[in-house]
Amino acid sequence: MTAIIGAFLSLIGALFFLLSGIGLIRMPDAFNRMQAGTKATTLGSILFLIGIGLQKPEYLGRTIILVVFIVLTNPVSSNALARAAHGYRKHIGARLEPDALAEADEAAEVASKTTANKEAVHGD
């Protein structure tokens, strides 16, 4: 009985893996691909691996470790990728309607320039 429940859990997880693949194909730029990829693979791997653990109880301990590891690390890698993608936002043609991070970067740059100018004036 638990084997059948596990197999169906794996099937739902596999559908989420397929969803992440479709999301990677359909979404228009890297940020939105990340949105689809990260979320769908996280829930997909939770369901798929727990399903395998239910089908074969001697694997359950290891699959639980793997699930915890994936839930903790998958957002971290997508965060690193999002920061990298923000550096290339003009190249990849990402549409970001309000871009608060670019505004903050510009503000910081202007602030550092004005202080540098003041110091230069002081130096003269």
């Binding site: 693949g21 990677l24 890297a30 691909r33 997909g44 793997l66 994936i70 998958n74």
Partner: peptide, 26 residues
């Protein structure tokens, strides 16, 4: 078309491959 898109795809492929290896164990 860009390196960052390929890396996002690689991230997804890594997770899916991990699950497939465990499925192969079964």
């Amino acid at each position: 078309p860009w390196a960052i898109d390929r890396t996002v795809a690689l991230d997804v492929m890594t997770i899916i491959t991990t699950s497939l290896i465990v499925a192969f164990a079964l």
